[in-house]
């Protein structure tokens, strides 16, 4: 199964958070939920179904891969880890968000965005 290029993957916020949670070390499903909650300071609590939806999509795109299992309390726990491609995708998304935040800050400070279509071009100077 060849992984898709990360660019073809639709990076949702949940997928991004799961990638971040798995970046430091492989985790099993339930631990990912806790890690995401810590990452977002309690703002985002993934349900099991959402988590597995994100994991399935990430695995299909080659951004995440299974990393072994353990049997705890008679229950199977499968671990997941982020792949090289997944690491790159997380970095790209972080960079995108950082650039977006920087532009947002400038906009909120009152600096008009430069470039075609900026209001300054259209309005013209007062007669």
């Amino acid at each position: 199964m060849s992984p898709r290029a990360p660019a073809a993957f639709r990076m949702t916020e949940q997928a991004y958070l799961v990638l971040l949670a798995l970046s430091p070390e492989p985790l099993h499903g339930y631990a990912v939920i806790g890690a995401v909650r810590d990452l977002t300071d309690g703002a985002t609590v993934l349900g099991a179904a959402s988590l597995y939806g994100a994991l399935d999509r990430l695995t299909a795109a080659g951004l995440v891969e299974p990393a072994g299992e353990a049997v705890v309390d008679g229950r199977v726990r499968r671990y997941y880890r982020v792949t090289e491609a997944g690491h790159r995708a997380a970095q790209q998304e972080t960079e995108r968000l950082r650039a977006l935040a920087a532009r947002a800050e400038r906009t909120l400070r009152g600096d008009r965005p430069t470039g075609p279509g900026a209001l300054g071009d259209l309005a013209g100077s007062p007669a």
Binding site: A48, L51, R75, R77
Partner: peptide, 13 residues
């Protein structure tokens, strides 16, 4: 393939 795993997470939650 994944049912037991998902059930485990649901129970943990």
């Amino acid at each position: 393939v994944r049912g037991d795993e998902l059930l485990g997470v649901l129970e943990d939650v």
